[in-house]
Design a protein around this nucleic acid. Structure first.
Lengths: 337, 337
DNA sequence: GTGAAAGCGCTAACAT
DNA sequence: ATGTTAGCGCTTTCAC
C-alpha cells in the first residue's frame, strides 16, 4: 500500500482548475441544468485526472440524502441457494447504480433484527429479506420502516410484496418431461408434505398426469426425508411395488442422488430401465451424477433480480402493492430421462 | 412501510433533552473522557428512546474519517467456496465492529478493477481479494492504494500478505488416515499437476508413505480431469491394475464421487473392498454420498477470518509484512474409510 | 455562465 | 461539567 496521504478532495480539484467547488461538482456529475464553458469543463477534468481525484461516496450520500444501498438479509450465507439470490439481486441493482449490503443471520430472529438495525443506520433505501427454502416467514417488525420485499418466502399476513418460485408449474413440467419420454407409470418422491415446495410440486405432478389422462395412483406417491438416504429408501420401496414405476420424479436433487443408488444397486440402468428427474438443480449434484441429472431449476437469481425490481418500483413511488409474484422454474435437460 | 417522515437527528434529541448536540454525542458514544452528570445522561437517553433516534452511520463515518468497512472482492459469488470465505471474514470483522462490502466479479480483470474502484470511493479501510481455488493471481494495481490481503491465493511477486490452505499437511493427513486403516497400497488420483493444490497434496501423500516406510509406486498415481467423470476414469484404470490399490485418495470430492461409481460398478464395496478419501469437503457431495465420504476440509471460513486479522493488524499499524500464512486443513471422518 | 453559501448529520477540540 | 464551534466532503439553490 502507498502511504496514507490525505485524500484529494473536490476543493483541491477546484483550486487546481481555478474554479469553484460547485463548478467541479457540476462537471463531474454531468449536470446539464447549468451551462458551463467547454474550457472550464476541460480544466476541471484535467485537474481531477491529474490529482487522481476520487469522489467520496459517503459524503455524497450525506449531501444527497440518498445512500444508493439496499440491504439484503438472509439466513446462512453458506447455503448454496442464498448466493444465487445475492448474485441476481446484485447484478440487477447495479443497473440502477445501487449496491447491496449483505447480512447473514443464522435464522436467529435477534440477529436478524440487529442486522436490519445496522442497515437502517446505514440508511439503506430498501430491504430484501431472502430465505433459503420457500416458506412463510416472520419478518422483524423493524423492517417496516423501509420498503421491504421478501424473496423465496412470503409473509403469512401478506404485508410485504414477495417473490417465490412457481413450484406447481415446475412440478408439472418435470412430470410432462417424463410423459413425453413415454412413461405412464411415474413415481413421485415428495418432501415433507406441509411445505409450499411439496404442495406445489405435487399439484404440478397431478396436473400433468390428469392432462395426460392418467389416473392418479396413491401407491406411486411417497414422502421421504429430504436427503440422499431418504431418496434411497423411498425409491427402494417404489421399486419393490408389484407394478413398479418406470420413471421417478424426485422432489429434490438430493433425494434423486439417493434414488440413483437404489436403482443402480438393483442392477437397473438410468434412464434405460428407470428414468429419474429431480428438482432444485443443485449444480454440484445434478451436473456430476452419472448420468447427469435432468432437473427443474429454482430461479434464484431471477428471484433476486425481481426483488430489486420491486424495491426500485416502490422507492420510485410507482408501486405499493404487496402481492406475491411467481417466477417460472425452467426444466434443465441432462441425461437421466 | 411507514411514511417517509424526516429522520430524527441528533439535534432533535439534544433539543428534547435540553442539552447541546455534543452532549448527546458524548452520551451516545459512551465517551468517558468527558464527565457528564447522570441526570444529563438519563435525559439524553430518554429523549433518544422517545424519538426513536437512530444514528446515521454515514454521517458519523464522514466526521470520523473512518468508514468501518472492508471490501471483499471475489470471483463468482456463486462458487460454493467463496461463500465460506465471506462468512468467516464477516464474522471476524464484526468482532471489530467492521463490516464487509462484497463484490462478485466473474474473474474479469476489468470488472475487478471497477469493483475495487467502487470500494475506494466508499473509503473502505482494507481489501480482501479472495479466489475460489488456490493459485497465484494478479491483483489490479489500484488495490495498492489501501491495505490488501489475499485469501486462498497469493501474489506471484509476494507484494501482498496472503492466506492459503496447507495443502501438503492435508494430503499427508488423508494418506495417514488410510495407512492407519491398514492400507499399504494406496492409489492417488490427482488434479492438474501444475496447480498448488495438486503439488501440495501430492507432497503430503509422499510424506506419509515415506514416513510409513512404503515405497512410492508411480503406477498408483494418476491425474484426471477434476470432475466426477475424471475420477471415474482414473479409478477405473487404477482398479484394472495387476496389483490394484485397496484404498484411494482422491484429490477432490468431485473425483471421489466418480470413484464411488467406478468401484460400485465392479460390485466392490466401500470401504470394505476399497476405501476412499476425498479432499475439499464439499458438503453437498461428501455428506450425501453413500457411504458418506471421509475427506479433508479446506478451511475457508478460517482463511477469511485470518485475512481480516491481517487487515486489522495492518490498519492498526502493527504489521506490514507480506508473508504467506498457511492454514491447517482438518480431516473430516465419515464412513468411506 | 459562474460562484457564494447553506446545509446533510455527526464528531471533537476548545472554551467556558 | 457543559456548551460552542469548526469541520468532514459533497450538493444545490440562488444571487450575480
Amino acid at each position: 500500500m502507498v502511504g496514507k496521504q490525505r485524500a484529494v478532495t473536490m476543493k483541491d480539484v477546484a483550486d487546481l482548475a481555478g474554479v469553484s467547488r460547485s463548478a467541479v461538482s457540476f462537471v463531474l456529475n454531468n449536470r446539464r441544468s447549468v451551462a458551463l464553458s467547454d474550457d472550464t469543463r476541460d480544466r476541471v477534468l484535467d485537474a481531477a485526472a491529474q490529482l487522481g481525484y476520487r469522489p467520496n461516496a459517503g459524503a455524497r450520500a450525506l449531501a444527497q440524502q440518498r445512500s444508493d444501498w439496499y440491504g439484503l438479509v438472509t439466513e446462512i450465507v453458506t447455503a448454496p441457494f442464498a448466493v444465487e439470490i445475492i448474485k441476481g439481486a446484485q447484478d440487477r441493482a447495479l443497473l440502477d447504480h445501487k449496491y447491496l449490503l449483505i447480512a447473514s443471520t443464522e435464522s436467529d430472529a435477534e440477529a436478524e433484527a440487529a442486522a436490519i438495525e445496522r442497515f437502517l443506520e446505514q440508511r439503506v433505501e430498501g430491504l430484501i429479506y431472502a430465505a433459503t427454502w420457500h416458506r412463510a416467514v416472520t419478518v422483524p417488525e423493524i423492517a417496516r420502516e423501509v420498503p421491504t420485499v421478501l424473496v423465496n418466502c412470503y409473509d403469512a399476513e401478506g404485508r410485504y410484496p414477495a417473490v417465490v418460485p412457481d413450484e406447481r408449474t415446475g412440478g408439472r413440467r418435470a412430470t410432462e418431461r417424463l410423459l413425453a419420454a413415454g412413461h405412464r407409470r411415474i413415481g413421485f418422491v415428495n418432501l415433507d408434505p406441509d411445505i409450499p415446495a411439496a404442495v406445489g410440486r405435487r399439484h404440478g405432478y397431478h396436473d400433468a398426469l390428469r392432462s395426460a389422462g392418467i389416473d392418479i395412483d396413491d401407491v406411486l406417491e411417497i414422502s421421504g426425508h429430504a436427503t440422499a438416504d431418504g431418496g434411497f429408501t423411498a425409491v427402494d420401496a417404489l421399486l419393490d411395488l408389484a407394478d413398479p414405476p418406470t420413471a421417478i420424479f424426485c422432489a429434490n436433487d438430493r433425494m434423486a442422488m439417493g434414488a440413483y443408488d437404489a436403482i443402480k444397486e438393483r442392477g437397473l440402468r438410468i434412464p434405460h430401465d428407470v428414468a429419474v428427474i429431480g428438482f432444485d438443480n443443485q449444480e454440484l449434484i445434478a451436473a456430476y451424477l452419472r448420468p447427469s441429472l435432468t432437473t427443474v431449476a429454482l430461479p434464484f437469481d431471477e428471484m433476486g433480480a425481481r426483488g430489486v425490481d420491486i424495491l426500485a418500483a416502490i422507492t420510485a413511488g410507482q408501486s405499493t402493492d404487496t402481492s406475491i409474484v411467481t417466477v417460472d422454474c425452467p426444466l434443465l435437460e441432462r441425461s437421466s430421462v
